[in-house]
Amino acid sequence: MAIVELQNIRKVYDTKVAVEGLTLSIEPGTMFGLLGPNGSGKTSSIRMMIGMTVPDSGTVSLFGQPFSRSLLGRIGYLPEERGLYKKMKVLDQLIFLGQLHGLSETVARQRATHWCERLEITEAIGKKTEELSKGMQQKIQFIAALLHEPDLIIMDEPMSGLDPVNGALLMETLVDLRREGRTVLFSTHRMDQIERMCDGIALISRGKLMLSGSMREVKSRYPRNRVNIAYTGDDSFLRNPAIVASKRDVGAAQLQLVDETAAQPLLAEAIARGTQITRFEVVEPTIEDIFIEQVRASFGDAAAEGVTVDA
């Protein structure tokens, strides 16, 4: 049984197609990354998952049942646009949001206090939101999404605007939650986050699904044809015809080869030309590489450049 299942959903705003024929399914107990550049339809898809907007066509199922509002109590949602009542005290706010999710005041208060300790923001608890830093507000909202112990946690760009320390803290928390058996779905345009943490991914661009599946599955579809190289001296070996694309820095390069077997001959050639090799590493393509390749194949080079800028 899939926790979230989208079947061929489509959403059009006026003349702009936000999501087009999106199909994906998320398995229970996994961490799922929804990946795509800004404006690609991530938020629109998430809003349809939680019934905030209704798809023009296609179906949404949650927890193996067709969508109904009664299932929303099992979902914790962190919207992309952060928002809290500015003049309200943090604890009151958390209790209020917990109560809306059906908790009693006592339970909401206990859990809110506990979570504030866990995320190291106990000092904020008696303050008004407007007195807090942006990062703290984000943590509060993160807590608000988790108070009712949801089975499915949906977070739209959870890391945006956080410093690395706090970003890591939230990521750790998400990993813990998945270990407890909860399903986590988050969207991001930062490919490196997905790479490290996700079991499953979906890449979307311009409202269309580029690819989806488990991380291993997606990566195994692509050959280990990337080489990271660091060298000093003669760089004429970089004119080798087996190199399809390259990104060069001073004394280093990231190369894409025609296939996996071209790596050894390339190394041999470099040594033969007397270049000093300090590092030579054959790697599988990163999710970012795969994504750019997909976008290029679907929409052409210009669009792929756009992805690189966003990522």
Binding site: R69, E81, G83, K86, L100
Partner: peptide
């Protein structure tokens, strides 16, 4: 408008109508 500008209603609408 306050809920709109502070975007809090996105959280609210995820639970209530």
């Amino acid at each position: 408008i306050e809920e709109k500008t502070s975007r809090i209603f996105e959280v609210l609408l995820a639970t209530i109508k």
